[in-house]
Design a protein around this nucleic acid. Structure first.
Length: 496
RNA sequence: GGUCACGUGGUCGAGUGGCGAGGCAAAGGUCUGCAAAACCUUACUACAGCGGUUCGAAUCCGCUCGUGACCUCCA
């Protein structure tokens, strides 16, 4: 393991902190995964890519990382529904499928899309439905420790009791008293939610919920036939696979409250320990400055990006364009989607890959006029500073310029430096940023290739005869069909 | 109403006290029959507003305006 000093911004302390694993060289990382009741969308891509970058970088630094990312597939209620109906159950009815069939379907699609984005599979991908026993055991521990109570077969976390000994709200900066008063101050009516009158305090949250008769997804427990509360799965599965204290817990900033706040309380109440050392949160992607949401009509699935089939999209955006677009911003900044910004990323990415190809063609000289070592140091410094991929990419673009200057003869590079340079690009572009070159679609279509070459050969003949009218007509007609024609000294190139 | 963020040039997006990150777009140039592409060069044109601290602030502090996220069973 090299001597790198990685600093990460810890949401808990609101500071960048030097990252020190609990038990080096092992690292435990837990990230909140998707709820598999719908198509994966742009909002799923950001946390997946952010923590993929962290996963890749930690491994590159020589750590042995166990990366756990859960799949939520049980009984959670829908806020905009009139009655508390299980999200997954509702979808199942609509599509006439078994609940677990829905879960399987959308899990598969999620995996497909993540693979297209070149997101590495986590080490363990546990499902909430497969860990009911662990969740029940944890709830029992919290009950035994006196931080929960049972009402009508449901179990609630006693936030007031907890707050007497520990501080509830340390992550989100919320104060229990404010949570109370904000309800009272809310104009109009207080939202009347199922089970609200079963709780001692409005801030209490469910650990176990008794299922209504029509509720299909249910499991037996000491308290009732029901299903686990929303926050307990992450606490239970995190502890099971990473231990009672582990290094990194990640997720979207939208999960900070109440989800992660509740996780902290649950783990503390159950095990008497602060479970997580570093809380890492990625920011959101906005569309025209707004959070993406189904109700706002600006909801774009990954499939729609990859096929260009959405009214807000001007064209197809490939998975790598999406990935690069996300990596061009720092993970803690909001990033605003637009066709223009994605097109800019697409072009930038192409330029990066062209330079990598040029790198292979460089012929080394005796001495170097460029400083490869300092580029390398800057790249590491960028990542060590809270995973600043944006700055890293700017250094890579500086290197692109360097490559082009070497090609043009303005600069030169020694064989040894060239090797280092190639290795550096390989490490940062492919291994750490996880960028890959996408295959041109026309590759399989040999017939098309032949036909276009035929036409361009005719054009070459026309040019040789100075018949530029014919040459230009062939070119402009092909361009009209969407081809790009590039004349070369000794021929031509084209792409579609 | 509460909590927390944010407001940077045409645009996207870094930077958190003192040499104007970078991408895209734009302009000029090289190349070329002309283009396209590629590459090179350039813009002293940016830090929401007002005040304060400081030798010096986009960067720290205060206020104002604006935007966003979260605010008890939505993960």
């Amino acid at each position: 393991m090299s001597e790198h000093n990685l600093y990460l911004y810890n949401s808990l302390t609101r500071k960048k902190e030097l990252f020190k694993p609990v038990t080096p060289p092992n690292i435990g990382m837990y990230v909140c995964g998707p709820t598999v009741y719908g198509e994966p969308h742009l909002g799923h891509a950001r946390p997946a890519i952010t923590f993929d970058l962290l996963f890749r970088y930690l491994k590159h630094l020589g750590f042995k990382v166990r990366y756990v990312r859960n799949i939520t597939d049980v009984g959670h209620l829908e806020s905009d529904a009139d009655e508390g109906e299980d999200k997954i159950l509702k979808k199942a009815r609509l599509e006439q499928l078994e609940p677990m069939e829905v879960v399987q379907l959308y899990s598969d699609i999620y995996h497909d899309k993540m693979q297209e984005l070149n997101v590495l599979r986590p080490s363990i991908e546990p499902r909430a439905s497969g860990h009911i026993i662990e969740q029940i055991q944890m709830i029992q521990k919290i009950l035994d420790n006196g931080y929960a109570y049972v009402t009508n077969g449901s179990v609630y976390f006693d936030v007031q009791k907890y707050n007497q000994k520990y501080k509830y709200g340390k992550l989100s900066g919320r104060v229990l008293e404010d949570l109370l008063s904000s309800d009272e101050r809310t104009e109009g009516h207080i939202r009347k939610l199922d089970g609200q009158d079963e709780k001692k305090h409005p801030a209490d949250f469910a650990l176990w919920k008794k299922a209504e008769v029509e509720h299909i997804m249910r499991w037996p427990s000491p308290w009732s036939d029901g299903f686990p509360g929303w926050h307990i799965e992450c606490s239970a599965m995190g502890a099971k696979y990473l231990g009672e204290v582990f290094d990194i817990h990640g997720g979207g900033i939208d999960l900070l409250f109440p989800h992660h706040e509740c996780e902290i309380a649950q783990s503390q109440a159950a095990n008497g320990k602060e479970a997580v050392r570093y809380w890492v949160h990625n920011n959101l992607i906005t569309i025209n400055g707004q959070k993406m949401g189904k109700s706002l009509g600006n909801f774009i699935t990954l499939e729609q990006f990859f096929t260009g089939k959405h009214s807000l999209l001007k064209k197809v955006f490939t998975p790598m364009t999406i990935r690069f677009f996300i990596l061009q911003a720092h993970y803690r900044s909001t990033i605003d989607f637009s066709n223009e910004s994605l097109e800019a990323s697409e072009k930038g990415l192409q330029r990066l890959f062209k330079a990598i190809h040029s790198l292979e063609k460089i012929i080394p000289t005796e001495k170097s006029t460029v400083d490869i070592q300092s580029i390398r140091d800057k790249c590491y410094a960028a990542l060590n500073d809270d995973l600043n991929s944006s700055v890293l990419i700017s250094h890579l673009f500086d290197s692109v310029k360097t490559i082009n200057l070497i090609i043009s003869g303005s600069e030169s590079i020694s064989a040894e430096d060239l090797e280092t340079f190639k290795k550096l690009f390989h490490i940062f572009v492919f291994d750490i940023l996880g960028l890959t070159e996408e295959n041109k679609q026309s590759e399989s279509d040999n017939l098309l290739k032949e036909v276009v070459n035929l036409l361009l050969n005719l054009r070459q003949e026309a040019k040789a005869k100075k018949d530029f009218a014919t040459a230009d007509k062939i070119r402009s007609d092909l361009v009209g069909l969407g081809f790009t024609i590039k004349d070369r000294k000794d021929g031509y190139e084209w792409e579609y």
